[in-house]
Amino acid sequence: MIASITLFYASLLALLLLGLSARVVMLRRRHQVGLGTGSVGALQRAVRVQANFGEYVPFAILLLALLEWAGAWTWLLHALGAVLVLGRVLHAQGLSKSGGVSSGRFVGTLLTWLVLLVAALSGIGLGIGFGLGGGPGQSLA
């Protein structure tokens, strides 16, 4: 079975990761920093945005795929995927502008954590037989 919903959101997030990575490369070239951040604030933030993405997104995508394979509701999978993409975009925008507190960074983090929490609880529910879908390979659109 192909996890087409997860594939869609993972693909969107891969494009976002490429954009974040390109920003790091661009800033490294502009400031002639080959390794580390050279104490350049914009580069430090860009590196942290990219790293934070790498810290959270793979596990969220794994949970999304496992939920899809376990037969979770289609609407739940789309909701989790869309909220994850939105959260990562907001986080990247917020942290890119300021290393301090920003609404984008706060809301982006909150949305990412919400996706992880709902996905984890849904996985536990499916794991113990609580009805959150139509069974493996089935969806209740």
Rank of each mutant, 00 (worst) to 15 (best):
L7A: 14
L7T: 14
L7V: 13
F8I: 14
Y9E: 08
Y9I: 05
Y9C: 06
A10F: 07
L16D: 03
L17F: 14
G19K: 09
G19I: 08
L20F: 11
S21C: 03
R23C: 04
V24R: 06
M26S: 13
M26G: 01
R29G: 10
H31E: 11
G34M: 07
G34C: 03
L35T: 14
S39G: 00
S39D: 15
A42N: 01
L43I: 01
R45H: 05
V47S: 11
V47I: 13
R48Q: 12
V49N: 05
N52H: 13
N52S: 12
G54I: 04
Y56E: 05
P58I: 10
F59N: 03
F59T: 14
L62V: 15
L63E: 08
A65L: 15
A65I: 05
L66P: 01
L66G: 13
L67T: 04
L67V: 04
W69C: 02
W69S: 07
A70E: 12
G71Q: 03
G71V: 02
A72Y: 08
T74A: 09
T74K: 01
L76R: 04
L76G: 05
L77G: 02
L77W: 05
A79K: 00
L80M: 11
L80Q: 05
A82M: 01
V83G: 00
L84E: 10
L84A: 06
L86P: 00
L86V: 14
R88Y: 01
R88I: 03
R88W: 05
L90F: 00
A92R: 03
Q93P: 00
Q93V: 12
Q93R: 12
G94M: 08
G94R: 07
L95W: 09
L95D: 01
K97S: 10
S98N: 10
G99S: 01
S102C: 02
G104H: 07
L110C: 03
T112R: 02
W113M: 14
V115I: 11
A119K: 08
L121P: 08
S122N: 10
S122Y: 10
S122E: 12
S122A: 15
I124C: 11
I124D: 05
G125H: 13
G125V: 09
L126K: 04
I128W: 15
F130I: 15
F130C: 02
L132C: 09
L132F: 14
L132N: 05
G133L: 09
P136V: 13
P136I: 10
G137C: 10
S139K: 09
S139W: 14
A141N: 09
